[in-house]
Design a protein around this nucleic acid. Structure first.
Lengths: 183, 183
DNA sequence: CGCGACATGTAAGCAGTTACATGATTAT
DNA sequence: ATAATCATGTAACTGCTTACATGTCGCG
């Protein structure tokens, strides 16, 4: 599978970057659906280098600090495009610990459920507010052949995901409260 | 973290089961948000046994075929409830390879994007149809202290997730088509 | 001069997938 | 008979997280 490999190749296909830059990218839009930390990125870059999918040259920041700026090769671009064009089946359903916990929530007293649900709710609302703020930067949908188009699509998806989670959490809270009244 | 440990304890807290039964459970409602296959379940059961959180007794199916039916212990129940009551922060954003691909979709020609998007769309619509069918079994919201309540909540969540994904996919298709007209 | 950001790496361990391996039971 | 399902395990490998480890640069 090696999704990280293609995530990195895709980012380097946008523009040359260092491992450090890549790890920052994974905190931005793309990070809503894929991320990795530096301890995974550096070894992967070494591997891509061995496979001749990337090359690097060293830039000096300041006096002596070396920065390896990686560039995708023609071979790398080909392999990336091959992966991107492939039609793959729907992936496995992603895991979610909080929903796993709610699956077992009949073992919790109602007050605890509501407390846990409200805590999740506030976190997701905060996250949604952050994402909505990012969305404000787009007055219009970016051109479909620009890098920004991908940014826009995944940001939109992340917002929709948060909105849906929030709707579900509110529904859960409501069901727990009504159910407890009925008793 | 050991989420699988608690998933298994929670299921055994519902009723005694074999490893085989557990792996089937992960294909039902709970499987929408957590799953594992038998190669992970059997070693985990052994570990739970070592930790004295479960015990088993052997049932014979047919003539000689042995079936290990696991039961949660009092210690196991306590540890499960401790985990369940804990208030944990929002987990990391789940990974999604298709959205990762769409992040890079400006490198695809419009026809390919639409083909890939429509393929995903049909798969998610099929999945939604299946889940909606499952939902029909509930004429009413189950009692909030029944096992079925958890089943209901996660099924509802899975349906909302599929609906949202479908809305997003349709939006992406529409954006790609309109954008290509404008050019 | 101290702190946060910049910058790159390795090691140990946990979690999860795929494949290997075996055998019994039930329905057709 | 034979295929699908029941039933239990192990081994090898991939992916990912957390911690270890080191050093520079720019700002206040």
């Amino acid at each position: 599978m090696r999704a990280l490999k293609y995530a990195i190749l895709g980012l380097l296909n946008r523009k040359p970057m260092s491992g450090y830059d890549l790890s920052k990218e994974f905190s931005s839009q793309i990070g809503n659906f894929w991320s990795a930390n530096h301890s995974q990125i550096y070894p992967e870059l070494k591997r891509l280098l061995d496979e001749k999918l990337v090359v690097y040259n060293i830039e000096i920041s300041g006096d002596v600090l070396e920065k390896k700026v990686y560039t995708i090769t023609e071979k790398g671009r080909k392999e990336f495009l091959r992966w991107l064009n492939k039609d793959e089946p729907m992936g496995p359903t992603p895991k979610d610990v909080f929903r796993l916990r709610m699956y077992f929530c009949n073992n919790l007293d109602v007050e605890t459920r509501i407390r846990l649900l409200k805590h999740q709710l506030s976190q997701h609302e905060e996250r949604l507010a952050f994402l909505s703020d990012e969305m404000k930067r787009y007055n219009t949908v970016p051109p479909i052949d620009s890098d920004a188009f991908g940014d826009y699509l995944v940001l939109d998806s992340a917002i929709m995901r948060e909105e849906t989670t929030i709707r579900w959490l509110k529904k859960c809270i409501s069901l727990c409260q009504n159910g407890s009244d009925e008793k």
